[in-house]
Design a protein around this nucleic acid. Structure first.
Lengths: 66, 66
DNA sequence: CACTTATGTCATGTTTGCTTGACATTTGGA
DNA sequence: TCCAAATGTCAAGCAAACATGACATAAGTG
């Protein structure tokens, strides 16, 4: 499950802490998602999509495997 | 987080066990998602969308609250 | 140089997603 | 009516998604 979070965030000039605050999660959670340590929950994925004005599919790319 | 899983499944004449097998999860997990006990993980939400040929947003409806 | 900001990471703990196994209830068909 | 399939639910356990706090490092800026 790859994602474009780092690019989208950088485009807006936000730090990981900025994004975390807007999403209502910890900074470490944003970092972990960006660095691929784990995938967000579905509710969080929806909040991310809503924040960037994108569909979930346009932020996260399913790799089919598993 | 509401979802149309029960309707989509019924349209295809599948039991919860049928759907669970196609998704690679336990029957109880399908039941728990349909009855709103918890939301699926993001990877599982993608598998569900792919199985029904729909976008995640067309299966799950974010209620904004949390 | 000293200081701040951003990022990465580790450790520990709680909550949630999901499992297996079991059992009760409902529903449909023979 | 009897039986089987479908559904709902509970309990116990594991793994993943969070949280908090701490620390290291790199890069910029005064």
């Amino acid at each position: 499950m790859k994602n474009r979070l780092r690019v989208l965030r950088a485009e807006r000039g936000w730090s990981q802490a900025d994004l975390a605050e807007r999403l209502g999660v910890a900074r470490q959670s944003v970092n972990a998602i960006e660095t691929g340590k784990f995938d967000p929950s579905l509710p969080l994925a929806f909040r991310i999509g809503r924040l960037f004005g994108l569909k979930v599919e346009d932020v996260f790319e399913d790799e089919g495997d598993q």
